[in-house]
Design a protein around this nucleic acid. Structure first.
Length: 85
DNA sequence: CGTATGACGTGCA
DNA sequence: GTGCACGCCATAC
């Protein structure tokens, strides 16, 4: 496992319930500002349920992507109290 | 080791 | 508001 990947996972793991972070923010917190796209690359591969990857959305507030159905991601977030566009 | 890929971000038409 | 072109970065091939 690469160092970058570990960091990203750590960061995402710390996102409190009811809050969200953009891919770019996560990248920054992971120590690699500007690697937003790379974060997506990792999330796409990540299968670990201990990582609330559904709390990671785009910087403009839209959902972005998801492993399973996007509707699921939307519901999860709203059920956690997150407002979406 | 070079090329392709994608859950991004920003700017501009 | 919508769509497209580009640049970016870590991974997968």
């Amino acid at each position: 496992m690469t160092n970058f990947q570990s960091r990203v996972i750590e960061v995402v793991r710390r996102i409190p319930r009811g809050e969200v972070r953009s891919y770019g923010q996560v990248a920054g917190l992971a120590g690699r500002p500007g690697a937003a796209r790379a974060v997506g690359t990792l999330m796409r591969k990540n299968r670990d349920p201990s990582v609330p990857c559904h709390r990671v959305i785009k910087s403009d507030g839209t959902l972005g992507g998801y492993n399973g159905n996007l509707g699921e991601k939307r519901d999860l977030l709203e059920s956690e109290g997150v407002r979406l566009k």
